[in-house]
Design a protein around this nucleic acid. Structure first.
Length: 324
DNA sequence: CATCAGGGCCCTG
DNA sequence: CAGGGCCCTGAT
């Protein structure tokens, strides 16, 4: 275990309005031991430029004049230049500069989306991870129930991650791709990841060998990004959809609806029996007709609204389809 | 006890 | 372009 002795305090100013808890906590994300949330505070590990860090985000200011008190914990001193780069990255990952004015203006009076926007005004999507890390998460999600995904992610973090101790919390930080490169496939399989072991190795290899670079990919146009992701072994349309919306922040991403989402959407958007779902292409057409330009963020608002209800026991029908 | 599908994707025909 | 196979696990 690594204690993080040094700490730095930085005041962040997100764009207004900002909903701290709805942005920094997502009841639909499966729990991983790299973060901890309580109202008004999120602890989150992060590896940036090879340095394992402990982050603590605290709510300050108001929704209209929002501030975030960010504490950065590290085992060594951090330079001002390093911290500047880190803050820029955090602003990008956590969508702190996102301007949803047009989205709100267009849909505030929408019969269905309007009330949801009113409830969650200032909420953004959340991605705390690098592209590489998110790919690992996407891989453990594939063809598994949530409970299994949780186990797989825990096993991986416990074996390859760094356990950090800071601010009274003990949390794992993701590993560097180079570390997994030295691991044999059988050893990965021993962690109950199954055939995903091969995928994890091949994706890791692409990063370790610089065949793909997140920094470079961010500068490319959308079709190239999509293709580069699909070119990764074991990464298909479902994973790519999550990554384009979450990691690259495409607010209109909607090319693929997987069966489990299709079931939930059927009830959520069409009040239909989830086990007799609307065809996916029909759903995409519906979303395009209603929310074009903002399909992903619109769905996110509905989705989070539903999962907050579920968290407080108000949408028990979901249990059957989440299988935590 | 056996069988099966799960928050996909690859590969083959 | 359809469909079998894949690691494992919990549900049935």
């Amino acid at each position: 275990m690594t204690p993080l002795k040094y700490s730095y305090t930085i005041l962040l100013h997100p764009t207004s309005p900002f909903n701290f808890d709805a942005t920094l906590y997502k009841p639909d994300h499966f729990p991983t031991p790299d973060h901890f949330w309580q109202p008004g505070t999120r602890w989150q590990t992060m590896r940036w430029a090879g340095v394992p860090l402990g982050l603590k985000f605290e709510q300050r200011g108001t929704s209209v004049q929002p501030k975030i008190n960010l504490n950065v914990f590290a085992q060594q001193q951090l330079s001002a230049t390093y911290l500047d780069g880190l803050v820029a990255e955090i602003r990008y990952r956590y969508s702190l500069d996102l301007d949803l004015t047009n989205f709100y203006a267009r849909f505030l009076n929408d019969e269905h989306l309007g009330p949801v926007i009113t409830r969650w005004q200032g909420m953004r999507d959340l991605n705390c991870n690098s592209l590489y890390e998110y790919l690992i998460i996407a891989i453990v999600l594939q063809n598994a129930t949530v409970r299994r995904s949780v186990t797989m992610m825990q096993n991986l973090l416990e074996n390859f991650g760094d356990l950090l101790e800071y601010d009274g919390k003990k949390l794992y930080c993701f590993w560097e791709p180079d570390l997994i490169m030295k691991v044999a496939e059988v050893d990965l399989r021993a962690l109950k990841v199954g055939y995903r072991a091969k995928t994890i190795l091949r994706v890791t290899e692409s990063f370790a060998n610089n065949k793909i670079s997140e920094e470079a990919l961010r500068q490319k146009p959308y079709p190239n990004q999509r293709q580069a992701l699909l070119d990764l072994y074991g990464i298909g349309p479902a994973s790519v959809g999550y990554i384009l919306s979450a990691v690259f922040h495409y607010l209109d991403e909607l090319q693929h609806i997987s069966p489990w989402e299709q079931k939930i959407y059927s009830k959520l958007f069409f009040d239909r029996d989830p086990n007799d779902p609307i065809p996916a292409d029909e759903m995409i057409k519906f979303m395009t007709d209603h929310y074009s330009g903002y399909r992903a963020i619109a769905i996110h608002y509905f989705w989070e609204d539903l999962f907050w209800q579920w968290k407080f026991g108000k949408a028990d029908w979901l249990n059957e389809f989440i299988r935590l």
